[in-house]
């Protein structure tokens, strides 16, 4: 396996009410190309901060240390079926060249202990891959040393599709804009691509003209997924993407994500508070607590033989259909 990205000694802290709060402490892990890695943890574990850091979406005031190193060859692979114009320029114009992959140029974000300033923030505006009104000519594609571009190389699905979709734009146009921006398609071709994407996320073609408020939560999340995969990204990040959905819709969306990832050979970073849900989708699970990586292993090892007491505690707290009922312990009767 080749690493799509290597995270080394990543630390992130925010200033809150004048106090430095550490969100991530010295995280090191590799995300293998094509693998499905789940990051699980409770509130404040840093799991969403990790997802945002990988996507270069951290807020401007965040202090970042360590590095996130991307394999440029892996990024390039993903673009082989895209128009040549969107091939990333892998010339090392910024940052350091990774040395871990011999002979393969890499893109590295080495943060040191710097403020999260200009090197990270510009991508924030591209999270939806959208320019004003969709009609403005884009800047030349961002080729910062082959660094991955959100929307093109990374697809991101958030928890709440109501806030990630534009409420006053038909959803078809929102998907088409991603295709137009990152695949450099004209509008007719972008819409043709959108029809294919709607089919892939199993929405009827009429959804093209629907506004977000006319769709259910599950349908909106399907639209968000279609937009996230529109540019055929190498990495799909799903951050609690099913947590606002009911159990049945959640299962459908998880199955859809699994299928799309397999079909396109995408790498999946699946962020969840639910260890059982993560286990249904992920090959490996990373357990975070208070900003630290407490355990990382194959899913079956984490589920059946966790080494860390906290991973064990999370498993014990899971109330599954095979768990012993709490009620029995007290012998309550109806």
């Amino acid at each position: 396996m080749t690493a799509l990205l290597s995270i080394r000694n990543l630390s992130v802290s925010y200033r809150r009410d004048g106090v430095e709060v550490a969100a991530l402490k010295d995280i090191s892990l590799d995300l293998e190309a094509g693998e499905r890695l789940a990051i699980i943890g409770e509130s404040g574990s840093g799991k969403s901060t990790l997802a945002l850091a990988v996507a270069s979406l951290l807020a401007g005031g965040a202090r970042i240390g360590g590095s996130i190193e991307w394999s440029a060859s892996q990024l390039q692979t993903s673009r082989s079926f895209a128009p040549p114009s969107v091939l990333p320029d892998i010339s090392p114009t910024r940052g350091e060249i990774g040395s871990s992959l011999v002979g393969i140029p890499s893109a590295t974000s080495t943060f040191g202990e710097s403020e999260n300033g200009s090197s990270i923030s510009p991508q924030v505006g591209e999270m939806s891959g959208r320019t004003e009104g969709g009609a403005v000519e884009r800047q030349p594609l961002d080729n910062r040393g082959g660094a991955p571009l959100l929307g093109r190389d990374i697809g991101f699905v958030f928890q709440d599709p109501s806030s990630s979709l534009d409420p006053v734009m038909p959803v078809g146009k929102q998907i088409a804009e991603v295709a137009r921006t990152h695949l450099r398609l004209d509008w007719p071709n972008a819409y043709a691509k959108t029809r294919t994407l709607l089919e892939r996320v199993r929405l009827p073609e009429a959804t093209l003209h629907a506004y977000p408020h006319q769709l259910s939560g599950g349908q909106k999340q399907r639209v968000a997924i279609a937009a996230a995969i529109a540019a055929a990204p190498r990495l799909l990040i799903a951050d609690e993407a099913t947590s606002a959905l009911d159990t049945i819709v959640q299962a459908e969306i998880v199955a859809l994500i699994g299928q799309l990832v397999a079909e396109d050979g995408m790498t999946l970073l699946f962020i969840s508070h639910d260890i059982a849900l993560a286990a249904t989708l992920a090959k490996r699970i990373a357990v975070l607590r208070h900003g630290q990586l407490v355990e990382l292993g194959e899913t079956s090892q984490i589920i059946n033989a966790p080494r860390h007491a906290y991973a064990r505690a999370l498993l014990d707290a899971h109330l599954g259909l095979d768990a012993g009922p709490l009620l029995d312990r007290q012998g309550a009767s109806a």
Partner: peptide
């Protein structure tokens, strides 16, 4: 509660049980 969840009779009951994530594969 335990009987219905162990052996749901309605289509929606079956769908809800099937959709509940499990730690250990097909235990129910």
């Amino acid at each position: 509660a335990r009987a219905v969840i162990a052996n749901p009779q309605s289509a929606i009951g079956k769908a809800l049980v099937a959709a509940t994530p499990r730690l250990h594969g097909n235990t129910a």
